[in-house]
């Protein structure tokens, strides 16, 4: 209806113009997604191309899987993966612990200093990654600890903990603190309340936050490159390799990474849909139960509670 108003006003636009204007958003979206995906697609194609150095998608001279074999034979690269995993696990533990403590404090402390606290704890997200790497390096170096896996783990956790904290805060804001009071009232200790009520409620967030923390850590370059000293991680090795002597092994690694990302995205979507479907079923059953309400047998009440 609104389009007709527009055409009436500008009645002289030729039909072809209308057709174009109507489809412009769609065309734009197609172009945008091509822009997002084509570079990745070309990068993946090059992983299967027999052409060696430098890797390229076209001309495609022949299909091969040899670059994947070369990748798994690349010992320094595999060692770097080991370092990445160690840092990643450290970051998961540290970021979840710190992020949760921050979230609990900010959602539950009733004090005026809360907003200042919040500002400082999210500030690492707005700080360039290299600054975090440098400040952590300088800090630990003055204590006699040079750059390495330990310093890199701490530097990464500084801002990854902020991500975790924001996720926990979002979850905790939907938390009915009455549940904790109910458990306490039924005789649970403070620790029991935390492990029986709060943690199960937070579990989905703990899992996603842990996953995101690991991914953030695994891919991090800007912070790590300063904090890592003479050690290396996969991402740093990859950058050095890609910059100096790119071989299709880099592309093979890219194929694996992207495939994993796609699989995880799909799993996430499947999980989201099945959760929504289950909730729907539950609500349906509750509605059904409403209709089938049975009266209480009061004598039975007496019998059971007297027992």
């Amino acid at each position: 209806m609104t389009d007709t108003t527009l055409t009436h006003r500008t009645g002289s636009i030729p039909a072809i113009g209308d057709w174009f204007m109507e489809r412009l958003p769609g065309i734009y979206m197609v172009l945008f997604f091509l822009y997002m995906f084509l570079p990745l697609v070309f990068m993946m194609i090059a992983a299967f191309n027999t052409t060696a150095v430098p890797p390229t998608a076209l001309p495609f001279e022949g299909f091969t899987l040899k670059w994947f074999g070369a990748l798994f034979a690349n010992a320094p690269l595999l060692a770097a993966i080991g370092n990445s995993l160690v840092i990643g696990l450290g970051v998961i533990v540290l970021s979840l612990t710190l992020g949760l403590s921050g979230a609990l404090l900010i959602t539950r402390l009733h004090a005026r200093s809360k907003s200042a606290l919040y500002a400082i704890l999210v500030s690492p997200l707005l700080t360039p990654g290299i600054i975090l790497g440098i400040s952590t390096l300088v800090f630990w170096n003055s204590a006699g600890i040079p750059g390495g896996l330990f310093v890199a783990t701490l530097a990464q956790s500084t801002f990854i903990a902020s991500y975790c904290m924001l996720m926990f805060i979002a979850r905790l804001q939907r938390f009915d603190s009455g549940l904790e009071e109910a458990a306490l009232d039924l005789g649970a200790s403070h620790q029991q309340v935390f492990w029986h009520v709060t943690v199960p409620f937070l579990k989905p967030t703990i899992i996603t936050a842990g996953l995101i923390a690991f991914l953030q850590s695994f891919e991090n370059f800007n912070t790590t490159v300063f904090a890592i000293g003479t050690e290396t991680t996969l991402t740093i090795k990859l950058a050095a390799l890609a910059r100096k002597t790119p071989t299709p092994e880099v592309n093979a690694l890219a194929v694996i990474f992207i495939a994993l990302t796609v699989v995880m995205a799909i799993l996430y979507e499947v999980k989201r849909r099945s959760d929504a479907a289950r909730e729907k079923v539950m609500a349906e059953r509750a509605k059904q139960a409403e209709k089938e309400m049975v009266s209480l047998d009061i004598d039975k009440v007496a019998a059971t509670t007297a027992a």
């Binding site: 990745l40 076209l58 990859l238 890609a242």
Partner: peptide, 26 residues
């Protein structure tokens, strides 16, 4: 579709353009 490239490593995203922009790139 947007989340996938978002989670692809920054180095790899940059590398894809390094390939495209190199002197004999596409």
């Amino acid at each position: 579709g947007l989340i996938v490239p978002y989670w692809v490593n920054e180095i790899l995203r940059t590398f894809s353009w390094l390939m495209l922009l190199s002197s004999n790139g596409l």
